[in-house]
Simulated scan of single mutants.
Amino acid sequence: MNRLKELRKEKKLTQQELADYMQVTRRGYQKWENGESNIKPKKAEELAKIFNVSVAYLLGYTDDSKMYDDELTVEVEGNLLSVSEKRFEEEYRNNLLKNFVRFLSDENLFLSNNEIVDIIQLLFSLSTNHGNSLKSKTFQDIFINKNHKYHKQLEKEYSFIFGDEFARDDTEKALHGYILEETRTKEKSEKLLETLKNAYGERDYSDFL
Rank of each mutant, 00 (worst) to 15 (best):
53 V>W: 14
54 S>Q: 10
54 S>L: 15
54 S>E: 09
55 V>I: 11
56 A>Q: 02
56 A>C: 10
57 Y>A: 02
57 Y>M: 02
58 L>E: 13
59 L>M: 15
59 L>A: 14
60 G>N: 05
62 T>Q: 13
62 T>N: 12
64 D>H: 08
65 S>L: 09
67 M>P: 04
69 D>P: 00
69 D>Q: 12
70 D>F: 12
70 D>N: 13
74 V>M: 15
74 V>F: 14
75 E>I: 10
75 E>D: 11
75 E>Q: 14
75 E>G: 08
79 N>G: 03
79 N>H: 11
81 L>H: 09
81 L>Q: 07
82 S>P: 03
82 S>N: 01
82 S>K: 03
82 S>T: 04
83 V>D: 02
83 V>F: 08
83 V>C: 02
84 S>Y: 10
84 S>V: 06
88 F>P: 00
88 F>M: 06
90 E>F: 09
90 E>I: 09
90 E>Y: 10
92 Y>G: 00
95 N>E: 10
95 N>G: 04
96 L>Q: 06
97 L>A: 07
98 K>I: 08
98 K>T: 11
98 K>W: 02
98 K>Y: 06
98 K>P: 01
98 K>V: 03
99 N>L: 12
100 F>A: 03
101 V>I: 07
102 R>F: 03
105 S>T: 09
106 D>W: 09
106 D>S: 14
106 D>I: 09
107 E>D: 02
107 E>W: 01
108 N>D: 07
108 N>F: 01
109 L>I: 15
109 L>R: 09
109 L>H: 02
111 L>P: 00
112 S>P: 02
112 S>Q: 08
113 N>K: 12
113 N>R: 10
114 N>V: 03
114 N>Q: 12
114 N>G: 08
114 N>I: 06
115 E>N: 10
116 I>G: 00
116 I>P: 00
116 I>R: 01
117 V>H: 13
118 D>P: 00
119 I>C: 05
120 I>E: 05
121 Q>W: 03
121 Q>A: 06
121 Q>I: 04
123 L>G: 11
123 L>A: 13
125 S>G: 00
125 S>E: 12
126 L>R: 08
126 L>Q: 07
126 L>N: 11
127 S>Q: 06
127 S>A: 13
129 N>F: 15
130 H>N: 06
130 H>I: 11
131 G>K: 07
131 G>C: 11
132 N>L: 09
132 N>I: 01
133 S>F: 03
133 S>G: 14
133 S>K: 08
133 S>W: 04
134 L>C: 01
134 L>F: 04
135 K>V: 13
139 F>V: 02
142 I>C: 05
142 I>M: 03
142 I>L: 10
144 I>R: 10
146 K>Y: 03
146 K>D: 07
146 K>L: 03
147 N>K: 14
147 N>W: 02
147 N>M: 07
149 K>S: 12
149 K>D: 07
150 Y>V: 00
150 Y>C: 01
151 H>V: 01
151 H>L: 10
153 Q>H: 08
154 L>Q: 13
154 L>F: 12
154 L>P: 07
155 E>Y: 04
158 Y>D: 04
159 S>P: 02
160 F>Q: 05
160 F>N: 11
161 I>L: 15
162 F>V: 11
163 G>W: 07
163 G>Y: 10
165 E>F: 06
165 E>L: 15
166 F>L: 12
167 A>H: 08
168 R>Y: 14
169 D>T: 06
